[in-house]
Design a protein around this nucleic acid. Structure first.
Lengths: 347, 347
DNA sequence: TTGAAAGCGCTAACAA
DNA sequence: TTGTTAGCGCTTTCAA
């Protein structure tokens, strides 16, 4: 009784254009045409197709379509989704803006520190229209692979040595210089740096700019601790920097996420009053920075603008045969809040 | 000179199994077999294929494969990616655990408040192996559609009236009762509630439980303001609740995100000391709740466990023909921190 | 173990 | 405007 009969049909057979055609009494290509914007179908035929499709609950299989159109409308996105709130904003904006262009997101998250090459290897098995790498380091080996496969790629908040890959980054140099100028105007005396992932281009740029600019102003005794761009890492780093006899009166953190943690360590563990006893400055202007609990002074990386630029770059690559890689630097601005001491007579 | 010759070839033609076969001097099906785990290929043939594939940089097109295997290894995920940090954790864990099962994520974000029916309509055009809806309300109309299309669906942190869709939710009732018991033990006198999205099942459950349990204990004068599960909404709601002559000494917020905001409003705008002048309690235990700046008392919705359950449920549905919908409630626990007044002699 | 052939669901010539 | 046909890149019978 419960024994299966001749039609197991475990593989779900979805409704196809062929089914609709049969029911409507037209050809399968007529059905295809009806779902192709701008194709010519007689009103009468169209009506029959609409009814049949409606009745069967037919929806064109977009993936099958892509096989022949060579356009999947799929954009791969790789980003670290740890607790750093900045990437949440980036992803949200990517999702929103890509959808307005008719693209869908195939999402890949990479564990921070993991080798992203394996992941990207895997990604190349999908017929993507483009790839956006957020805060991911791309080996020049794989950069070449993407190039060879004609896969448009844009890196966000990172650069690769291979100059063939376009990138959108914040203005690390201008940002750091602005921050240092601000700190110097505030008569800070002892500086420290909480570094991000040492491997990353962003950390390299920010660290290099911070130390060399300070050195040029006569400050050579600048402390450093590595926070690896994580909250936990920053906790240890901040403790280390503050646990000395004469702690710094200014800490620049390579991103906001770490700065927020440093702020808490200074405030709750070392009983220092940010903006008075110590100045803490971040980089990003993530959405927590403006919260009353933090009021973090920071240099902004305008995520909306950067996402917009990245998508424009990607679209250009998709459309143009002979696109030349561009490296866009999006200027931010110093957002002054209460985590830092103001220069006297500051307006 | 720069004029294009006979081969425009603008459509990028990727390397196919056929190309590899030709170069290796074998049939295309041999190539396919080599990339099929467990298929029988002679070592000699295999070697030739490996070399040819390597030379051409061949990778099987996973999407083309899915057309015939009827398995895309794609899971659709819909979730709101506003600034609520809880969903970032959920997405991260979904991504991680799904990848261990060989699944990839097709990501769809829905604007809070937007009609998700249109979005899901769109989603049904993709040959997904499953769909996970996070904090999204699903109309019973579309629930039926999914059922008809044999698309396995699991809802997280929401339920739908249609009992055909499986769900994983936190223990709203137990959570609220635990919270109320704790507040009563702390001798709180005046209660208020900041509501989430009025349409959502979670808000309904929490609100209903909060008000009816308090009423059963003789507290009928309980204030309410709607925060729509957003930070901004909560700000207005908190201000409203606190701007009266005798403000509440206990506010329960329908999620942590709003509770964090309420905490800030109480502290920075109304100069109230949380845990002393006022108790604020949330729901979720998101990653900010434990930060020193907040120390929010809350009832946890263990995201890791919930994600695990949701994926299990989805996998069961994918594998079993005759799966019956399940509704899993994951118990959390009261996490007592400093945003709430402790009962006397509390241990 | 291998290749030929059919076909997944669809689009896009082409001819009628 | 329509149907016929070929074929996207792949897997999977089926015979050899």
């Amino acid at each position: 009784m419960s024994k299966k009969t001749e039609t197991p049909r475990s593989a779900k057979r979805s409704v196809t254009a062929h089914d609709v055609a049969k029911l409507a009494g037209v050809s399968q290509s007529a059905v295809s045409r009806h779902f192709t914007p701008g194709a010519s179908v007689a009103p009468k035929t169209r009506q029959k197709i609409i009814e049949a499709a409606e009745q069967l609950g037919y929806r064109p299989n977009l993936i099958a379509r892509s096989l022949i159109t060579k356009k999947s409308n799929l954009i791969g996105i790789v980003l670290p989704l740890n607790t750093n709130p900045y990437y949440q904003s980036i992803l949200e904006e990517l999702s929103y803006e890509l959808s307005t262009h008719g693209y869908r997101i195939l999402l890949f998250t990479n564990q921070t520190g993991h080798d992203s090459d394996l992941l990207i290897e895997e990604i190349l098995h999908y017929p993507l229209d483009g790839l956006i790498l957020v805060a991911v380091n791309l080996s020049s080996h794989l950069a070449e692979e993407c190039k060879q496969n004609d896969l448009p790629v844009v890196m966000m908040t990172r650069k690769t040595e291979s100059k063939t890959i376009s990138s959108v980054t914040g203005d690390n140099i201008h940002g750091v210089h602005t921050i240092v100028d601000f700190l110097l105007a505030g008569k800070h005396q002892k500086f420290a740096y909480i570094a991000g992932e040492p491997q990353s281009s962003t950390n390299y740029d920010r660290e290099e700019a911070f130390f060399s600019y300070l050195a040029s102003q006569g400050f050579n005794d600048v402390q450093k601790a590595i926070g690896y761009y994580t909250y936990e890492g920053a906790r240890l780093a901040a403790r280390k920097l503050l646990s000395v006899s004469t702690p710094p009166d200014a800490i620049f953190c390579a991103n906001d996420h770490m700065a927020l943690c440093a702020l808490e360590v200074a405030q709750y563990e070392f009983k220092l009053q940010p903006g008075k006893d110590i100045s803490i400055i971040g980089f990003d202007d993530n959405y927590l920075a403006s919260w009353d609990s933090f009021q973090l002074t920071t240099y902004s990386q305008p995520s909306k603008q950067m996402v917009h630029q990245a998508i424009q770059l990607l679209l250009e690559q998709i459309e143009q045969e002979d696109f030349l890689p561009k490296h866009i630097i999006v200027k931010g601005e110093l957002i002054i809040r209460y985590s830092s001491r103001l220069p006297l007579n500051y307006q």
